[in-house]
Write a protein that binds this DNA or RNA. Sequence first.
DNA 1: AATTGGCACTCAAGCGGAGGGAGTGCTAAT
DNA 2: ATTAGCACTCCCTCCGCTTGAGTGCCAATT
Lengths: 340, 340
Amino acid sequence: MLIEARKRAILKAVVQEFTTSAVPVGSQILANRYFLNLSSATIRNELSNLADLGYLVQPHTSAGRIPSDQGYRYFVDFLMETEPLPRPVKLFIEAQVQGAPADGQLFVERVAMVVAAVTHNASVVSAAYGPRARIKHLDLVSLDPQAVLLILLMEGNLLRQQVIEISQPVEQSALSRLAGRILKNVAGQDREEVGSLAERLIPGVENEVLSQVLVLLDHFEQGAETLVVHDGVRNLLKQPEFTDTARLHEVLEILEESRHLSALLRQLIMESDLQVVIGSENVTEQLRSCTVVLTTYGPSGRLKGTLGVVGPTRMQYGQIVARLGAVARAASQRLAEIAS
Amino acid sequence: MLIEARKRAILKAVVQEFTTSAVPVGSQILANRYFLNLSSATIRNELSNLADLGYLVQPHTSAGRIPSDQGYRYFVDFLMETEPLPRPVKLFIEAQVQGAPADGQLFVERVAMVVAAVTHNASVVSAAYGPRARIKHLDLVSLDPQAVLLILLMEGNLLRQQVIEISQPVEQSALSRLAGRILKNVAGQDREEVGSLAERLIPGVENEVLSQVLVLLDHFEQGAETLVVHDGVRNLLKQPEFTDTARLHEVLEILEESRHLSALLRQLIMESDLQVVIGSENVTEQLRSCTVVLTTYGPSGRLKGTLGVVGPTRMQYGQIVARLGAVARAASQRLAEIAS
DNA sequence: AATTGGCACTCAAGCGGAGGGAGTGCTAAT
DNA sequence: ATTAGCACTCCCTCCGCTTGAGTGCCAATT
């Protein structure tokens, strides 16, 4: 699996050169810019070798080499150096994230904006609100004789609402009391434990409301409603790999269909805290020409949101990984403050 | 201003033909498909005339004609026939909108999806929550000794939240009582009237919270936080006018910057209930090659949301106006149900 | 006076070949 | 093992040619 040192150096140089120039890189350029003590002929031999090993490909016979997905994989696993953050970028991230709104929805949107801005690619961010998130607050509001609105404040400061249909009117004051009672049993506990409280909660006429609330708590528990947001599609337009709009169309299909998107993120929910899915490694057909970089954020071990970058396989991995990580750290910190 | 009947008919034919074919239309095609009793030479004369009048332009000397912005304007004002809704489209709109979630945010997203789907263009939808919307519910939640969260349920079922910093701890029970008292004075009333209640509301230690709540009510009153959502950018990619990604980039700059977007909508907030802004009529520089079609929705006269389509000037105006209107009606109806 | 057939003219788009150039692969020399 | 040299490949661009759709104008027709 490991390849010898000089090949590694050359592969690394090819990736670095190609990710910035977007032009297939030839032996000449490598000899001049990276390996002054080697002739282009030597490098040609090495390049040919790396191509045989599957790390590089040639667009056509007389062109330079570009990294294959396997080449990028090797680069990411063994060669990549995470770039230090330029000071302005660091300041931008801190300012934007520390000033992010407490509102969970707006927070996620802000984070998505920042990721897109600092990585110059499309971003994908899901809310820090997983299947085991806690309920911080709960309220019942009488809308009309037939309907009650359940308002939930989840960890991560996400507000959810759901209408409950009822057969007979219930007073607002009774609803408030009921909400208080439910909350007392629910607040701070995992929603998974909530179901078992059904019998302990003394019913009355409010039984109807109660039972429906419990169903809804269960529903939100499944995380089916996970909030996912994307931004920065305009950045992709600048990349030469997307001058062909057909490619972009495929990617947009994924990004704009939030159900696809949340499915995608769920699929990739990570063992490691950084995941790089390169080109053909993507399960999603439409992302085969893209790389997805994912990490998590969230103040506690339990409360995890996803934070990702979607771009062409030719991306500046070192830079993007570093910047994504920086945003994740800032977001976690900010979230700890506001969603204490 | 009015032009003679035959010229009108020809202009209409040119617009219809061009909006569907995307190819400059020549005298031949018009003679064969629209004016069997006229020779192509006659039509050539008329075309030349219409071009002199500014309604048509020629991409180059030996090409057919395409409508100018002025030509589209004339078409929209005098010639356009709104197309009847095909049954499947009607059913789709009804199903999707009647099944739309009660949650204001999700509702807007759903509507944006529907508009994009039925118009095959990009959509822009703002929440039905104007500067004079009412507060349906209000709650105060103790986060920690230093912070209280204000939760607002606005008309249109939009939930808003804001953190309030406090100097000394307040009990949750006290907060609940306070929220109830504020709500009693505020619910169902225009927020504009709320300010005057400040003195009537008897303060205590909760005075600090109260005063901040009033400031925030004021803040939300300004509608600065209007929710704007867009969808269907992928539809634009199919249009030949956007094969050049530079054009698309301009448009995306507007769509993806929600502050630009809400400014745009506010600018265009309408006297009439249908507004068509064609190409160079757009104040926004980046939309000069686009048409924006806007209408409003909302159950009452007071509660208005915006609902729009963004696409190339070459769009099927009759169809799009009809479909946008249908979505607006459906959305108004659904909103009346859920946000009663 | 409006319409029309005829005709020369224009110009974008498509095609094909030539030349340039970047880059390779191979071979033989170091 | 490295490298200079060289023939070869193939993309890209430019150029000129052809094609064809469409125009504009004029003279003839109704």
